[in-house]
Design a protein around this nucleic acid. Structure first.
Lengths: 250, 250
DNA sequence: GACGCAAAAATTGCGTACAATCTCCGCACC
DNA sequence: GGTGCGGAGATTGTACGCAATTTTTGCGTC
């Protein structure tokens, strides 16, 4: 299931020119290549710090160096790669401190998004999406235990909730920046964020309250609730990191 | 004085290959071209919405399309240009609402930077830079009137102060994002920010207090002072915009 | 055996030609 | 007269070859 991504970069000469199965196809090779390399990096196909050679990538992806270079530049500006002139691109290493810092930034940005959403109000469609997400979350949490499918389901609910608030902030730059924070590999273990029942339940209650505050146009409360909401996720992350690896150095 | 930038894009076939005067030279043409196009955009050589043709730019800059394409892609990821597949790049139009929103975001990010700087402490060098900036500001404000040279001087002081705090936050992503907020053309009138004596004096007093809070490691106070500091600049901007042009629409 | 230096190999930067796509204009047709 | 269609021109996307730079390799010397 998750192998499709890796296969793209395997040695089995993938044919990119043919519309490979997926109905959606990127308008240009550069964008398509960027998507595929991004997916490979996020799924951990490359070691952090590994250099990405243009020719090798272009051979594996079955395109020339030009779109590969373009894609690498895009990924570098997204923060996934490092670039050094005349030395090329390498997979960025994320210190755990950088991962935590990204949550710190995201806390500020998401709380601003919530405040702006409260100030500017929600469209009918946005209200519908959020209410749907809240209802779905309620349903998942109705039984008092979470299975694997529930965690995937709640992940989608969580995404819909936050993403809609970003949209409701009516501020493109804000959404872009939050996306950058999220593209930071959330620690080497993917999504360490706890999925314990009580934690998820508490976070879902936060969602309800945040939505209430936004509906009531209570900008200050929406901001503070969202700030605490994201900050608590950060705290959980820090706890789980320092729990497994006592890397308490600076 | 400010013509050097525009000249780079004039018709007088500039020679880029020769090391033209400036001691500093970018390591690659792509980076150098990006700098020159960025400067041209920020100095208003292109209308907002104007399309940037690759061949024309490459002819004017005396390089091939390859580094131009690379530079355009960089500038698009910085948020200065819009990109549409198969349609190229155009100068991004900034609504006044987007300019105000950029200040809103910057308020959150700078206040976070101040908090982190307070939590993590300043290096000796950083303390020296900030104390120098504060002393220089005191000197400029000693006489109770501001001339043109003073405004330029205070601009440098202001930059040094904020930039050092960004560095002291020990968080690269934060600095990058703040830079993005600042690269938004600050309304079509460049730097509308008031330079009235009393306003500058007040802002300089803010700097003193923020530095005190950081020295005392009072993270909460540093954050709140910085938040109010940047927010007040935003307010001044909004006032000056709505003062000249009553564009109170949505 | 360690270090410095030069030549060779590998890799990225850039220029250019060609292909794919979009835009615009003219013309037939409704 | 308005609309849809088709082709020429313009513009961007891609491939490929060569130049410039970096990295590696090998040798000679200390």
């Amino acid at each position: 299931m998750s192998a499709t991504v890796s296969d793209a970069l395997s040695d089995s000469a993938p044919d990119l020119s043919a519309d490979g199965g997926d109905g959606e196809r990127a308008p240009t090779r550069s964008l398509s290549v960027a998507d595929r390399i991004r997916a490979s990096i996020l799924s951990g196909d490359f070691e952090p710090g590994a250099r990405l050679h243009e020719v090798r990538l272009s051979e594996r992806l079955g395109v020339s160096r030009t779109p590969v270079r373009s894609a690498l530049q895009s990924l570098a500006s997204e923060g996934l790669l490092e670039y050094a002139p005349n030395r090329g691109y390498s997979v960025r290493r994320f210190l755990t401190s950088e991962i935590v810092d990204a949550y710190e930034i995201r806390t500020m940005l998401e709380s601003l998004a919530a405040r702006l959403a409260a100030e500017r109000g929600l469209s009918d469609a946005e209200r519908a999406v959020i209410e749907g997400a809240l209802a779905d979350g309620d349903a998942i949490l109705a039984k008092e235990e979470l299975e694997e499918s529930d965690r995937i389901g709640y992940g989608a609910v969580n995404f819909a909730f936050h993403d809609t608030i970003h949209a409701a902030s009516r501020c493109r730059m804000l959404g872009d920046m939050i996306r950058m924070c999220q593209s930071v590999p959330q620690s080497s273990h993917r999504n360490v964020v706890s999925f314990e029942y009580l934690e998820v339940r508490r976070r879902h209650e936060d969602h309800h309250r945040i939505y209430d505050a936004i509906l009531l146009r209570d900008a200050y409360r929406a901001e503070m609730l969202m700030r605490e909401h994201v900050a608590s996720v950060k705290t959980g992350l820090v706890r789980s990191i320092s729990g497994r690896a006592p890397s308490r150095r600076r």
